[in-house]
Simulated assay, not measured.
Amino acid sequence: MSLAYTAERAQEIADNLVGVKAKLDETLQSKGASAQKARLVAVSKFKPASDILAAYEKAGHRNFGENYVQELEEKSKELPRDIQWHFIGSLQSNKCKVVAAIPNVFVVETVDSAKKATTLDKACAAAARAEPLRIFLQVNTSGEESKSGMLPSEVLEVAQQVVSTCSHLKLAGLMTIGSPNPDLENGENPDFKALNECRAIIQNALKINDLELSMGMSDDFQRALLQGSTNIRVGSTIFGSRPPFNKTAA
């Protein structure tokens, strides 16, 4: 795996990151005193490790998102250990051991069932991780069959199980993808509103006050920030268009 990159490519990626961060800061500032902090996750799936290293060295970026376990495993071995990896793809139960064994996985954003949480918890125990692994519960707020995630009505029960029985996991937040063409009401994305409502229910029931919201991507991250997102996932705007899907990367 080559980590070499050209000065031109590094500058391109750095400039793109600056542009996204400027929009992020501008959007949060528009909220005034109520503005929350937000994390930018540079989605690097299908991109060479050299692109990630360029963003790391040229722009000082540290948070990167990967969708496929094999690709994440390979890149994590080659790239600096202080990168904070976000796993944002569909996690199969038989891949939990691999993810749990990667020490600098910062968060798994796609835990979509109580069974998956239990499997990941056992994998973390076997891997003897230094600290509990952060997870987000993925919620299908749009109700689309093509989307992964649990229903909003199921989230509290799963959250309760994670907190009470999964000692090697830390419930850190909720995640949604949402509809690509939401019917905006009063300027609000109903999918983002639904995730906020899920968080309020969980925080009230479990006496938690710091759950994150991972919502918003390249096309809608500014709207997501206005509705309380603390974690946005942006890929093509930073790295450019991606090559076709390669099944061997999964």
Rank of each mutant, 00 (worst) to 15 (best):
Glu197His: 12
Ala200Cys: 13
Phe192Glu: 05
Pro103Thr: 06
Asn104Thr: 07
Pro48Trp: 04
Leu171His: 04
Lys115Ser: 12
His168Cys: 11
Gly149Asp: 12
Lys37Asp: 05
Glu57Arg: 12
Pro182Phe: 06
Gln203Met: 08
Phe245Ile: 12
Leu120Gly: 12
Lys95Ile: 03
Val158Tyr: 05
Asn209Asp: 11
Asp210Glu: 10
Ala125Ile: 15
Lys37Asn: 10
Ala14Gln: 04
Lys45Pro: 05
Glu131Ser: 15
Asn204Thr: 12
Lys170Thr: 13
Ser164Arg: 09
Ile232Met: 00
Val41Ile: 15
Ser50Met: 00
Asp183Val: 07
Arg81Asn: 12
Val111Trp: 15
Asp220Gln: 05
Glu12Lys: 09
Gln92Ser: 00
Lys147Trp: 06
Leu53Tyr: 02
Leu206Pro: 12
Lys122Cys: 11
Thr176Arg: 10
Leu206Glu: 06
Ser218Trp: 02
Gly89Ala: 00
Thr237His: 07
Leu28Ser: 05
Pro152Met: 01
Val98Arg: 01
Glu8Asn: 06
Gln222Phe: 03
Ser142Phe: 08
Tyr5Thr: 09
Ala114Lys: 13
Lys31Trp: 02
Glu78Asp: 14
Phe221Lys: 02
Phe245Ser: 01
Glu26Lys: 08
Glu78Asn: 10
Asn246Met: 11
Pro244Gly: 00
Ser214Arg: 07
Asp25Met: 04
Ile232Thr: 05
Glu185Val: 15
Gln84Cys: 11
Thr248Asp: 12
Val111Asp: 09
Arg9Ala: 00
Leu133Gln: 11
Ala194Thr: 15
Ser142Ala: 14
Lys47Thr: 10
Ile135Trp: 15
Gly60Ile: 08
Arg223Pro: 00
Ala159Met: 11
Leu211Glu: 02
Gln29Arg: 07
Met217Ile: 09
Ala33Glu: 14
Asp15Gly: 04
Arg62Glu: 03
Gly228Asn: 07
Ala38Met: 06
Asn196Lys: 08
Leu225Gly: 00
Cys124Asp: 14
Thr110Met: 06
Pro152Gln: 04
